[in-house]
Amino acid sequence: MNRNEVNIAFEILLEEIEFVANQLHESGAAALRAGDYEKARQAIEEAIRLAEFRAKVRALQNEWAGLVSRGLKALGAKPRRTARERLQRGLRTPEDAFRRPILESLVELGGSAPIGEVLERVGARMKGGLNQYDCQPLPSDPRSVRWKNTAQWCRNTLVREGLMKSDSPHGIWEITEAGRKWLLHESGQ
């Protein structure tokens, strides 16, 4: 297995973790709506364990990238990249950078809006912060731009954290009261 296959394996694992986290979130939300607080508590506990596991996987992924990078430098080699490989870690704008622009855009739009409108505002807010890699199409879907995909992953994280609603109509993003409070807290107000 070469170094790029290892990175792909990490990304596949992280995507699977995201999938399971979303299922746990939906299960917990459904349990709350049904008044089954014990089931909701169990879903929350599992989600917390899964978030801790995700953090460990990310740490291992970073450790791997550092080991490979140092090993390549020691050998005087340069990393190769083909068109179909995933972008090297650290080249695209990180998911967390989209957190505030998404939430602020939702507040500006009255608390909820279609995905396209939110992403348009996020793109305008981040225009100076997006780099050349962010603006490239994804190798897996040339019709999708990388930064929009990253913003959508960030939305999943915000939903899991309770800062955005999980039960919004399809294609609509909505901020929660907790999301508004987070923005106020982060603004220092």
Rank of each mutant, 00 (worst) to 15 (best):
E15Y: 03
E16G: 06
E16L: 14
I17D: 07
I17Y: 04
E18A: 15
F19S: 12
F19E: 12
F19K: 14
V20I: 10
A21Y: 00
Q23M: 12
Q23W: 10
H25A: 06
H25Q: 13
E26V: 05
G28W: 02
G28R: 00
G28A: 06
A30Q: 11
A31G: 08
A31H: 11
L32I: 05
L32H: 12
R33F: 10
A34W: 07
G35V: 07
D36G: 12
Y37L: 14
Y37S: 04
A40G: 01
R41P: 03
I44S: 03
E45K: 09
E45I: 03
E46S: 08
E46N: 01
A47S: 15
A47Y: 10
R49V: 03
R49H: 09
L50M: 08
L50Q: 00
L50C: 04
L50V: 01
L50E: 01
E52A: 15
E52C: 08
R54M: 02
A55T: 07
K56A: 11
Q61V: 01
Q61M: 08
Q61T: 08
E63F: 04
A65M: 08
G66A: 04
V68I: 13
R70I: 04
G71N: 14
K73P: 04
K73M: 10
G76F: 07
A77M: 12
P79W: 02
R80M: 08
A83L: 10
R84A: 13
E85H: 10
E85S: 05
E85G: 00
E85V: 00
R86D: 12
L87P: 04
R89I: 05
G90M: 02
G90A: 07
L91C: 05
L91R: 11
D96I: 11
A97G: 03
A97K: 15
L103S: 05
V107M: 13
L109F: 06
I115K: 15
G116H: 02
E117S: 15
V118C: 09
V118S: 05
E120D: 05
R121N: 09
V122S: 03
A124M: 12
A124K: 14
M126A: 05
N131A: 12
